[in-house]
Amino acid sequence: MSNWERLVWNQRGLLWQGLTVTVEICLLAFALAIVGGLVLCLVRLHVRPLRPVAVALIEFFRATPIFVQLMWVNYVWPELFGWPNSFFTSGWVALGLQSSGYLAETFRAGIEAVPRGHREAGYSVGMSSFQVYRRIVLPETLLTVAPSIVNQFTVIVKSSTLVSVITVPDLMLQAMKLVNVWYEPIEVLTATAIIYIALVFLVSSAGKALADFHRRRFGLDSA
């Protein structure tokens, strides 16, 4: 019986479990990153009194290593806010917050890239500022930044391996468990790397396909 069969194939249930945890954490983090990024960006651009807060948060999320943030959310937040109450939650919240900092800047670039004339065309048919924002600026921005948003998802997937250090049973943790049982890292870790490559490849191809589609259909280049 080969090592591949013994260490990888026969353990596929465990690895699969890990993979589902990884996917769950990434999706939750991704959702948080989009919502958080949009809120931070809109506050930064349009809520004058709160602007410094938004800028500080964006810079904080972008400038701190994901490892530090994970520790910070996991150990400091429960002391300060009594939340999160599980490692799993700490994991996706930390991942989501970091990406929200990056996405906030992506959204801002996208909003600023909407040509002034597109807004003026809205004003000149009598639309209100709110209507112009909701019907023209935001949809156009979402289309231009969609490919970049998808690519940010690959960053989340890769960073997500770190949640294993706070004992979230993701793919990486399950793989390390197997390694630590038999002390035979070659097959398990290679298989793990291949799974991550496949995941990231899948997501980035989706991003590229989306960018191509948007260029063809709407003539929009991604921000």
Binding site: H118, A121, P139, L143, F218, G219
Partner: peptide, 8 residues
């Protein structure tokens, strides 16, 4: 001059 159609 620049048409300014909404591309989406």
């Amino acid at each position: 001059q620049q048409f300014n159609l909404w591309p989406h």
